[in-house]
Amino acid sequence: MDRMNWNTRSENRATRLARAANALGADLTGKCVAAEAIATLLEAGALARRSRLPRRQQT
Rank of each mutant, 00 (worst) to 15 (best):
M1T: 03
R3P: 04
M4R: 07
N5R: 15
W6N: 09
W6R: 04
W6D: 08
W6E: 08
N7R: 08
R9H: 09
S10D: 07
E11P: 00
N12V: 02
N12D: 07
R13L: 11
R13V: 05
T15G: 02
T15H: 10
R16Q: 14
R16D: 01
L17Y: 10
L17F: 08
L17H: 10
L17E: 15
L17R: 15
A18I: 07
R19T: 15
R19E: 06
R19N: 13
A20W: 04
A20F: 10
N22E: 14
N22Q: 10
N22R: 12
N22K: 06
N22Y: 07
A23S: 05
A23I: 07
L24T: 00
L24G: 03
L24I: 03
L24E: 02
L24V: 01
G25N: 07
G25H: 02
G25K: 00
G25W: 02
A26G: 09
A26L: 13
D27K: 02
D27I: 02
L28F: 00
T29A: 06
G30V: 03
K31L: 12
C32K: 13
A34E: 09
A35H: 11
A35P: 06
E36K: 15
I38T: 12
T40E: 02
L41G: 02
L41C: 04
L41H: 09
L41M: 13
L42C: 04
L42D: 10
L42K: 11
L42G: 07
E43D: 15
A44C: 04
G45M: 07
G45V: 05
G45C: 05
A46Q: 14
L47A: 12
A48L: 08
A48N: 05
R49I: 09
R49A: 14
R50D: 14
R50W: 06
R50G: 13
S51D: 13
S51G: 11
S51C: 01
R52E: 14
L53Y: 03
L53V: 07
L53P: 07
P54E: 06
P54C: 04
P54V: 01
R56F: 08
R56P: 11
R56C: 05
R56V: 08
R56S: 12
Q57H: 10
Q57V: 13
Q57R: 14
